[in-house]
Simulated assay, not measured.
Amino acid sequence: MNQLTAQTVVPFNEFVLKVHSRCNLACDYCYLYQSGDDSWRGRPRVMSDEVVARAADRMAEHARTFALDRMHVVLHGGEPLLVGPAVIERIADRVSSALPTSTALSLGVQTNGTLLDARFLDIFSRWGIKVGVSLDGTDADHDGHRRHHHGGGSITRLADGLALLTQPATRHLFSGLLCTIDVTHDPLDTYRALVRHQPPVVDFLLPHGNWTRRPPHRGASSRETPYADWLLKIFEHWFDAPERRTGVRLFESIMGLLLGDDVATDSVGQAPCRTLVIETDGSLEQIDSLKSAYPGAAALGLNVHDHPLRAALSHPAIVAGQNGPTALAAECRACPIVRICGGGMLAHRYRAGHGFSNPSVYGPDLWKIIHHIRGRMLGALGESP
């Protein structure tokens, strides 16, 4: 990455706690375990109470230093529910009690859903922990990718967990569904399988890949747009529906950006990255999707034992991630939709020998999606694209 000044950095306000470094599933596209970065092998399986306490103190220090009025903490893995409900509660209690009263805390967990049960939901209800669940469409499509280590599918146990989560007493904890796109699956079948659970929002995730290790079905031709074509079939159905059954984060983010909003996601827009990952051993890292680029791509060489969290703000990689268009390739900076696209997800820009100063490998797809949505919005307003 380019060496940039640290003058424009902003404090972190979202922390991803990797509370467990292993997973009970063996998903074939997983960027943590299938991309070649084996750093997880040398880390503790479970974040110890000592690391939790140190991380909580560092987050509280960060909140006081920058007078943060809010902070979001996500419990993540691996599969975070492998730690068990008692550990989840200890973590929620320790983080909550450490923060100054002037900082509002929101807690979340991202899970594959197979371990969700009444014990976890009781803890989540007590602490207001919002629950995001990964689901890849129809039962057959989901089991085609998201399997147990013994080879069996995971949809049955996931469905049981979702049924518990979406009961009236706990539905308010349901934060949404994550779906990794497979363009060989029918897009409308996928969408209908997701919305039957009535999620408040759906995140469609582009499979992690880059110029050196291309995503599935994303060839070299800029004329081919398999992911845009897949997503736009869902967009048309969603946009024209008399009543939208869920939010779709990518579509709503692009629409907001087109209307002039300063939307912040890691996929589109130019808002500075304000997320920091804390691993089970206390190491500080960038967003872990970078591990799909090359081993060690997310590492910062810092940890909660020896460094305040603000130390990460001066790391060249974090500085680059917070300087928006300045860190983009020249081709992206000159693009008329750069404010909307934002260069795409950082991990998808990597090319061996050239680093991250490249357009996204999904550039043609993003261009087509953005222009199509712009045209539909203008049409809805009675204007010509």
Rank of each mutant, 00 (worst) to 15 (best):
residue 30 C to D: 11
residue 59 M to V: 11
residue 306 D to T: 15
residue 265 T to S: 08
residue 188 L to M: 11
residue 177 L to G: 01
residue 219 G to V: 04
residue 5 T to H: 14
residue 324 G to I: 00
residue 2 N to I: 14
residue 259 L to Y: 12
residue 157 R to H: 08
residue 200 P to E: 05
residue 61 E to R: 15
residue 121 L to P: 10
residue 360 S to W: 00
residue 191 Y to C: 02
residue 189 D to A: 15
residue 267 S to W: 03
residue 279 E to A: 12
residue 4 L to M: 04
residue 335 C to W: 10
residue 178 L to V: 06
residue 160 D to I: 05
residue 204 F to M: 06
residue 221 S to C: 04
residue 351 R to N: 04
residue 345 M to H: 12
residue 338 V to R: 10
residue 137 G to W: 02
residue 177 L to R: 00
residue 337 I to L: 13
residue 206 L to W: 08
residue 115 L to R: 03
residue 257 L to V: 14
residue 303 N to W: 11
residue 241 A to N: 04
residue 68 L to H: 09
residue 173 L to F: 02
residue 256 G to R: 02
residue 169 A to E: 15
residue 285 E to W: 03
residue 181 I to A: 04
residue 39 S to E: 15
residue 313 L to E: 14
residue 302 L to H: 12
residue 331 E to L: 11
residue 244 R to Q: 11
residue 146 R to D: 08
residue 241 A to L: 05
residue 36 G to C: 10
residue 371 H to P: 00
residue 251 F to Q: 08
residue 257 L to A: 12
residue 335 C to N: 06
residue 18 K to C: 02
residue 259 L to E: 14
residue 247 G to K: 08
residue 208 H to C: 03
residue 138 T to F: 09
residue 17 L to F: 14
residue 77 G to R: 04
residue 273 C to P: 00
residue 157 R to E: 09
residue 209 G to R: 00
residue 38 D to G: 13
residue 307 H to V: 13
residue 37 D to H: 11
residue 113 G to M: 01
residue 162 L to E: 05
residue 345 M to V: 07
residue 313 L to G: 15
residue 220 A to Y: 04
residue 49 D to T: 09
residue 362 Y to M: 05
residue 174 F to T: 02
residue 262 D to E: 10
residue 234 I to H: 00
residue 316 P to M: 15
residue 28 D to Q: 08
residue 239 F to T: 01
residue 231 L to C: 03
residue 337 I to A: 10
residue 6 A to G: 15
residue 245 R to P: 00
residue 30 C to W: 04
residue 331 E to P: 00
residue 26 A to L: 12
residue 374 R to G: 12
residue 291 K to S: 14
residue 299 A to F: 03
residue 292 S to H: 00
residue 308 P to I: 15
residue 311 A to E: 15
residue 153 G to C: 14
residue 135 L to K: 02
residue 26 A to F: 13
residue 91 I to Q: 06
residue 366 L to D: 04
residue 279 E to H: 07
residue 319 V to W: 07
